[in-house]
Design a protein around this nucleic acid. Sequence first.
DNA 1: CGGCGCACCTGAGTGC
DNA 2: TGCACTCAGGTGCGCC
Length: 284
Amino acid sequence: MPELPEVEVTRRGLLPHLSGHAVMEVWCSGKPLRQPVPEQLLRQCICDNVITTVDRRAKYLLLRLDDGSVLLIHLGMTGKLGIFHKTAEKAKHDHLCLRLDNDMELRFNDVRRFGCIAVWSADQATALEEKFQGRQGIEPFSQDFNGENLARLAKRSGQPVKSFLMDAGRISGIGNIYANEILFASGIHPRTEANSLSEPQWQRVAECTVLILKKAIKAGGSTISDFLGSSGKPGYFQLQLAVYGKKDAACPNCGLSIEKESISGRATFFCPHCQPLLGIIGVT
DNA sequence: CGGCGCACCTGAGTGC
DNA sequence: TGCACTCAGGTGCGCC
């Protein structure tokens, strides 16, 4: 489920239920996620500690404990987090369960097990977080996310701009759906080589990205006000997507048909009229 | 280093 | 009703 907006809405939804509560007990399904869940380390690091806050970096959630340790959660493709009473029956594909001091539980459910659970012990957290932060790309809501920096990053990349936007090492939080939407809003063909965009075009991409992500967060925040008792959480917000999944539908801008292609193996939707490929003569 | 292809896993949908 | 096949929103690895 997760691109930046879904993860951010999850963070905001969980925060009031977690902040200030101690973790009393840890349960794991025993099945590995992307990596095996570090069950013993998890117990050692977070049991009897109080969750102080929940941060987000890229598509990761960071649950910070009062002793300095950190629980890192990535939702993968199908991961969901929810708050349940301890007596509520566990769901199929629940893989991690943290019992809190108020008889509620934070549960991580992930059908495809592409998610990731890691923990940084207090004595290593600073070093490990530094390493982690260094691997993440620019945050779309940071000051660094602007035309100048994007143009500089893209300078030596002949990748399609869509793949570039989705590269988590360069830019955080943009997955396939929003990459499609951002490029439609920017009027840029997804196959355009990243290094062929001008700085003003990158500036436009940056502005469209912020607008679209904020709109999605708002849509998610209004439809999902509480994480209590529901495992069917986020999922993609039904904001009116302009192009994603809309093959052969009318472009909301010009009315011509939306096309679908595969770029780096990912479904890619665009309007060939509103997003002309640069350098093609006769197309404006 | 840059970029591509693939693997990781389950379930939903489609066509025969 | 069943089976085989395709596809799905992310990430990271190996390979060129």
